[in-house]
Design a protein around this nucleic acid. Sequence first.
DNA 1: TTCTCTACTGTGAACGCTCACAGAAGCATG
DNA 2: CATGCTTCTGTGAGCGTTCACAGTAGAGAA
Lengths: 343, 343
Amino acid sequence: MTMSNTGGRRKPPTIHDVAREAGVSRGTVSRVLNGGHYVSPTAQEAVNAAIRKTGYVVNRHARSLITGRSDSIGFLLTEPQEKLFEDPNFNVLLRCCTQALASHDIPLLLMLAGTEDERRRITRYITAGHVDGVLVVSSHSADPVAEELRQAGVPLVQCGKPMGRGSKVSYVAADDRDGARDMVRHLLSLGRRRIGVVTGPLDSPGGVDRLAGYKEVLTEAGVEIDERLIVSGDYSRASGEAGAERLLAQAPDMDAVFVASDLMAQGALTALRRAGRRVPEDVALGGFDDSTAATESTPALTTIRQPYDRISNEMVRVLLAQIGGEDPAAVILPTELVRRESA
Amino acid sequence: MTMSNTGGRRKPPTIHDVAREAGVSRGTVSRVLNGGHYVSPTAQEAVNAAIRKTGYVVNRHARSLITGRSDSIGFLLTEPQEKLFEDPNFNVLLRCCTQALASHDIPLLLMLAGTEDERRRITRYITAGHVDGVLVVSSHSADPVAEELRQAGVPLVQCGKPMGRGSKVSYVAADDRDGARDMVRHLLSLGRRRIGVVTGPLDSPGGVDRLAGYKEVLTEAGVEIDERLIVSGDYSRASGEAGAERLLAQAPDMDAVFVASDLMAQGALTALRRAGRRVPEDVALGGFDDSTAATESTPALTTIRQPYDRISNEMVRVLLAQIGGEDPAAVILPTELVRRESA
DNA sequence: TTCTCTACTGTGAACGCTCACAGAAGCATG
DNA sequence: CATGCTTCTGTGAGCGTTCACAGTAGAGAA
């Protein structure tokens, strides 16, 4: 359609070529490129035609050199390497964020900070201004990298509530407490009363809030909180399996269990099956996340849906706003109960 | 340690500041930055000290503007969005490539080309020279995007053998044929003779080669090839389940099955279990990839290990060489049989 | 007319770096 | 002493863009 660069690599057209072609000045072309304010319709038209004809694409390096912006943003994952991709939530988040950024024509730089060395390298890279901002994802929200970046004045937004309540850092999170409440209410509505819970890590707000929701609903319903029905995990499949095992040992009469992530719920399913408990007949099982793990299991998991697409969009929106000079913001998004087979 | 950018964002030091600090010229600093040839030890030392003292980090945009290189490379995934992350192999590959690049201090730009729109946008972005080269990953190797980029003269390396035998495109792949041979030989050594196979997509060399290995070994062993023991899938879990079902219907006496990917093998496991076949007692099951799916299943999968870490390193090495002007290259890496529980 | 205001356009001057080139210094060779 | 060679260093130009500024033209008001 346009003059694409077939064959060898020739010198690409510059803004100057476009200007000459359109019979205007560089400045006018630049203005068209950047929103088109204060440009006559005639010039606008001529420039666009010239751009199409020459196949011009802006040289981002030249632009960045002068604007000081890189027009790219980083996606930072701070997890030990083994766990890095076990959790399907990371994948979904990565995919959604990439797409959300793509719609703004902003490339995403993937940054994996598993080891101490990598963290140093990446911190240096980011503080050097090679990206305009950072999307931070990590399951344990007390992240020193994020804090360091924040102090260096780098715009960033975290996925999930951060630990320190005082720190003014942007974040986007699902409503953990409310989601947990919905799930436990659902289990109660099924007639279950001996409801166990495998929590997330309790050094993270997400883990704490989901446990809080659990306790609240039980208390409101007049069901006594039994500490033997509460164990904690770290969102890994293995910890879900171990957690369910411990619960079965401590409270053999358990008739339902709320597991704070689908991946852990998968593990719990294994443990329950091994113990000869039928799901959902003997023990109703509720997960959290609605990740791919939920539909892959048999039985498919009843779970709380985290709106990852909306979370990603909001993260990008908040980050872009912050890069544009706005203040840090917190966004909490509603969850939704998804009924499948396990409860 | 050094003067890090604490607090607000001040103007970062330039090469000029370093030169002044070190008492040398810009040129000398630049030479130190780029390998340090033709620089006296004294100057070398002074410059390094000045860099440490000022906290200088090169401005990549200014450098790129003049060199024409972006010093970044793209990771292109051309798959429909749903499948994008279902396959754990993609995750591993992405992780390994990111790390391989990180060791060269090269950032990775993630590019997801699921829809036609995205493909156009990304092709445009790449041909505009915003990345120096591209790592291409896709399960169906007949990829129009890759071909288009290749014709535009963009350095790229594919993961897996490409379809057209004539096209001079770099690639790195595991030895599919040999891996399949190892697995089938192993199944034979277990005393199995009615060995089924669920192949990968037969419009891709990987799928074809694994099937070829299967047939070769059986023929060499004097076992007759039975077409009822051969069905094909598309590497998805669902297709593995359907494939195993079909095999059981067509050849109920099947005593082993070689499934061309671990994800499909997971599906096959479900089908076998549903049909009441014990694995490995009644039917021995062999997978391919040694992805996370292999250890997550019960029983854990005996499989053929694809050396993803080496594949990634080679992809990066070949790509960098090609960017440096060398000719396209093909690398085939050996696989390894990993015995677990399923066979 | 003259002035002001708005809408638009063109022109240097950067941005921070690398590269080519010229030149200096040191040393051996003719 | 001149010449060449090698090793090292500094300087000016320029990469392609944006930005600030100056300037023009036309419309409307005084």
